[in-house]
Design a protein around this nucleic acid. Structure first.
Lengths: 110, 110
DNA sequence: ATGAAACTTTACCGAAAGGGTAAGTAACAG
DNA sequence: CTGTTACTTACCCTTTCGGTAAAGTTTCAT
């Protein structure tokens, strides 16, 4: 069960199209800062900030080897988010309606 | 296929726990502004802003009857978001690996 | 016709977000 | 040991965000 602050960070991380672009890129395998920055129309330090946001949210993970830092996607985290949405999308309507009918002793549906 | 600005709005809408609380509430059926505001520790105008954010993103929809405005969830939109995440979670790795092997005429896996 | 209920609008505030420059450090390549 | 590559840090600037109070509007009940 993901807690509220984590959900804040993850959804916020996804709310920017540059960051989503990086995620798309990482979907095809790990990449360095420079590789991730290359298609983006912004300065390197700005890219770094985006990557920090992504990593702080847990969507992405990085390790440094020599002078290059390599980022990779953490699909499990995306899976958790997907689950969160799936739960809301479904809605608890039917279940609660049935429960309510049961508790109030009304007629079952025809 | 949802466009970038829409994704921005939807993910941003979900990045606040008060707004997610409203979504949870709406998962059990439509509700008025007052009902949605009731559990939240903030002034009405603030709640209104949150609802506007949710509605602008398309996650929620409202109609006014008399003096009360009723909000309801739009699960289709959540379904679209879920799909977006699912696509990234899966990763295009396998497909591209196979394509790459095919294009470069390497040996197939043992 | 009056008043309460249920929003709505306006105006303002402090903090955080997204962007940039400039300068700094760390590891290679020669 | 010097230059270059690949990040990293430190600030600065502007816009957006979440929140407020106060005043306005529209309905509904009496």
């Amino acid at each position: 069960m993901m807690d509220a602050p984590t959900l804040d960070l993850m959804f916020h991380a996804l709310s920017d199209s540059s960051r989503r672009g990086m995620i798309d890129r990482l979907g095809r395998g790990p990449a360095s800062v420079t590789e991730l920055a290359e298609p983006l129309p912004m300065a390197l330090p700005t890219v770094l900030k985006h990557l920090n946001v992504l990593e702080a949210s847990g969507i992405v993970q990085s390790t440094k080897t020599g002078r290059v830092r390599t980022y990779e996607l953490r699909q499990e985290r995306l899976a958790e988010l997907e689950r969160w949405i799936a739960d809301r999308k479904a809605g608890w309507n039917i279940t609660f309606d049935r429960l309510d009918r049961f508790l109030t002793e009304e007629e079952p549906e025809p």
